[in-house]
Structure formats: structure tokens, C-alpha cells
Simulated assay, not measured.
Amino acid sequence: MAFVLLTLLSAGIGVTLCYPADFQDLGGNGRNRTSIRFLVVGDWGGLPTSPYVTTEQTLTAQEMGNVAGQMGADFILALGDNFYFKGVDSVDSPRFQETFESVYTSKYLKVPWYVVAGNHDHAGNVKAQIEYSQKSDRWKFPSYYYELNFRIPNTGKTLTIIMLDTVMLCGNSDDFADAQPRAPLSAVDANRQLVWLQDRLARSKADFLLVAGHYPVWSVSEHGPTKCLLKKLRPLLLKHNVTAYLCGHDHNLQYLEETGVGYVVSGAGNFLDDDTRHWNHVPKDSLKFFTGKSSTKGGFVHAEVTDSKLFLTYFQAIGTSLFRTVLSQREFM
């Protein structure tokens, strides 16, 4: 009876639920070293018409390959708005080739891309992006939200990354209004994700615990702090001593730190915006770094997790690092 009930529940939940993952295999990349390295890029989704890419996307892709070759990258976090401006319509959409496969061509970027959806993706068919995981060797999008677990090589330490669908959680946003999501399309799906997140955070014993989504918790730029996430997510980040929250949505690079949690905005993969209208809407002294200058030509973040530290380095597409910060592993009471 219990098995039948579980089966029925699973069928009803469908693709929106993803149970805790096993530890991911770093393969040969995990030998003879003591860290995990990865890139973080958001809002990288090209254009819906020819040439299907922006100059910023092309240059950012090239520099991602350079940095991955020099500093290493075991995987990439792709944090939404993967296809401008209305996502894709099917798993056979040519956009997968035009905006992804034919752009990120460096051999150093032929690693797993762990994907979440952004507001522009939700304007199209997110299930088609999930299904593309079966057609691509590197596109890893198993569910709307999911958990990744890693062993940091030769250290005995662990890293967990919880990938969220913040559009499902909060609703889509209207960039022509105040850009704040109004309400989730399905309150049931939003609550199911929140309950899942609470459970995963409460259970986590990872030495480094990251949460990633599309919408920002804190941002000084056009979209500003996301009210829904301040209410639903921020208390959980603080309660469970999360190391950092990673996102995109605003088209620039930001680093904020508040009450021991790092907030990474990496949304410069395709466009740039130096808007700072919400400069005074974040906690005092929390903003440590910001750039949206067109002269940077795009940007992304390189992360390295060692046995005791998380190193975050911000890169501009024209080939130099802009900012670096360090976060310590979690402390358990």
C-alpha cells in the first residue's frame, strides 16, 4: 500500500520534483588535486533572430574558455534566461545550436552545464529545455529544480548546490512594469518546491552549501531585491547557514554580503546594464562590488572550492579579473 501511494504521489508530482542526487562524478578531473572549480554565468541567451548572438555573448564565451583552460572548470552553472526573448518552443528548436552549441565551442567548456530556467525561458517551453538533456552530452537540466552533490577531491569535504526555479516559486516578471514577480502560476507547485527546499537545507551536512536561481535576493540594479525571495528564501539562507546564493536576472556583475551569506549576481553573459536605481535598497555596506559598464563586454564568475574556502573571481569578457573574494566553509553548532 505504501509503495502504491508513493507511486501515485510521484505520478502526480511529475517533472517538477527531483529527489536528492547522488554524488556527481568529476571523472579524471578529480585526480591529484584538492578543489572543485566551476563557472557561473546567467542571462546568456543570445537573440531570437540572426545572428542569434550578441557581441557580449561571443566575447564572454571566448573568455570563459580562456579562464576554464587556465584556472580549470569541472562544470558550469547556467542561471537562466538561456534563450532570449521567449525561450524555445520544442526540443528540436534550432536555438540550441545557434545560441548554445555553436557559441561555447572551447574544449574547456565541454563539461556539464547545470541549467535552471529564467523568466524569459518560462515565456516558452521549459520542458523542452529539460528534454534537451537527452540530446546533449553536456546540457544537464534534469528537472525544474534539483540538488547537486560533490566530493571535493582528496579532502573529505563536500559541496552541495541546490538549483531552484525562482519563476515557479515567485511568478514571472513584467520588465515593462516594476519587474517584480506578482504571484506563482501555480501555488501548489510553488509550495511543493519550497517544502522540498526546506527539507534539503535542513538535512544538508555539506561543508559548502550553495543555492542558485535566476531572480536575485539582493540587487542594486534595475530589478532590485526580489520581494518574494526576501520573504520566502532569505530566512532559509540565514537559518541554515548557506554559504552563498548565486543568480542572474540583472545584466551586470555584483557581489553583496549580508549576515554571513554571500550574494553573487552574474547576469552579464549577453547584455550589460549599469543601472543602479536600487543602490539604497540593499542593506547598508552590503554591496562590495558592482560593474555594468559596456566597456567590460560581458562577464562571468569563476569559483573554486577547497577544503576550507570558497574563492570567487569576477571576470570581464575583455580578459581581466575585476574582483575577488573569499568565503569560509559552514560552521555547525
Rank of each mutant, 00 (worst) to 15 (best):
V217S: 11
K232Q: 12
L272T: 12
A206E: 09
P142T: 09
G27C: 08
T325K: 06
N172Q: 11
F3S: 12
R151Y: 09
V301F: 04
R95S: 12
D207W: 02
W279V: 13
E222F: 15
A303E: 11
D199N: 15
E101N: 15
C247T: 03
S308M: 01
D175C: 01
S186F: 07
A11G: 11
K135E: 10
L237H: 04
V53S: 12
S308T: 11
M168Y: 03
L233H: 05
F83S: 04
H249S: 04
K309P: 00
S50Y: 14
V217W: 11
G262W: 04
R95Y: 12
V4S: 08
Y19C: 05
T166S: 15
V41L: 13
T105M: 04
Y245V: 01
S136E: 08
V40S: 11
G45Q: 05
L47V: 03
Y19S: 08
L169S: 02
H251I: 00
W139F: 14
S308H: 12
L59R: 15
I318R: 10
L185T: 10
V188K: 10
E56S: 04
A190C: 07
D74H: 13
F75P: 05
Y52T: 08
D74T: 12
H302K: 01
V116G: 00
V305L: 11
A179W: 07
F23T: 15
T296Q: 11
T16H: 07
G28Q: 14
L148V: 13
A179Y: 13
F311M: 05
T60S: 15
V88N: 05
L159T: 01
L236W: 07
S136I: 03
Y215T: 08
V265S: 03
V111M: 03
V220M: 09
S143G: 14
K110I: 01
E56D: 08
S106V: 12
H240E: 10
P235N: 01
S266P: 12
P184Y: 04
G30R: 13
G65V: 11
V220N: 04
Q97R: 13
E147A: 11
G262N: 03
V282R: 01
N125H: 01
F290P: 05
L312D: 06
P235F: 06
K127G: 04
V301M: 02
L159N: 06
T166V: 05
K297I: 00
D178G: 09
F289K: 09
